[in-house]
Lab assay of single mutants.
Amino acid sequence: QAKEDFKKMMEEAKFNPRATFSEFAAKHAKDSRFKAIEKMKDREALFNEF
């Protein structure tokens, strides 16, 4: 479920497709859906799949 929420957050964010993961992470670090994925490498993997 956390992965689905994370993907939904990325869809809602409508970020620049050229944005890096660190830019995305800095902007969304306080979002509970971002925090729900415990490991940063897992967050980055989901970001890269998107």
Rank of each mutant, 00 (worst) to 15 (best):
A25T: 08
Q1P: 00
E44W: 01
E12R: 01
M40V: 05
N16H: 10
K30M: 12
K27M: 14
T20G: 12
K3L: 10
F50Y: 13
K39I: 06
A29K: 13
P17M: 06
F15M: 12
T20R: 05
A26I: 09
E12N: 05
A45W: 08
M9E: 02
K27F: 14
E12Y: 00
F24E: 04
L46P: 03
I37T: 03
A13M: 09
K14M: 09
F50N: 06
F50G: 07
A29I: 05
F34W: 08
E49D: 11
F21Q: 02
A29V: 10
D5Q: 08
A19S: 13
R18M: 12
D42Y: 01
P17I: 07
K30T: 15
A26T: 11
F6M: 02
K7Y: 12
K3C: 00
P17F: 09
F34K: 02
K7Q: 08
F21V: 03
D42N: 03
Q1R: 11
A13R: 11
D42Q: 06
E12H: 02
K7P: 01
K3R: 13
M9K: 00
E49V: 07
A36K: 09
F6R: 01
K7R: 12
D31Q: 00
D42M: 06
R43N: 00
T20H: 05
F50P: 00
K41G: 13
F21N: 05
N48L: 06
A36H: 04
N16G: 14
T20N: 08
D5K: 03
F21S: 04
M10W: 03
E38F: 04
M10A: 07
A25P: 00
E23A: 08
E44P: 00
K35A: 13
F24G: 02
E11R: 10
A26E: 13
I37L: 06
E49L: 07
N16C: 12
N48G: 05
A29L: 08
K41F: 05
F24W: 05
A26L: 10
F21K: 02
N16S: 12
N48K: 11
F15L: 15
F15R: 06
K35M: 14
D31I: 00
A19C: 12
K3I: 15
E23R: 00
M10T: 04
E23N: 05
D31A: 00
D5A: 08
A36C: 09
M10Y: 08
D5G: 07
K30C: 14
K30F: 08
F15E: 13
K39P: 08
A25F: 03
F6D: 00
K30H: 12
R43V: 03
P17Y: 13
K7L: 12
K35G: 08
E11P: 00
P17E: 14
F47N: 03
A13N: 11
K27T: 12
K41N: 13
A2N: 12
A36W: 00
M10P: 03
E4C: 00
F6L: 02
A29S: 13
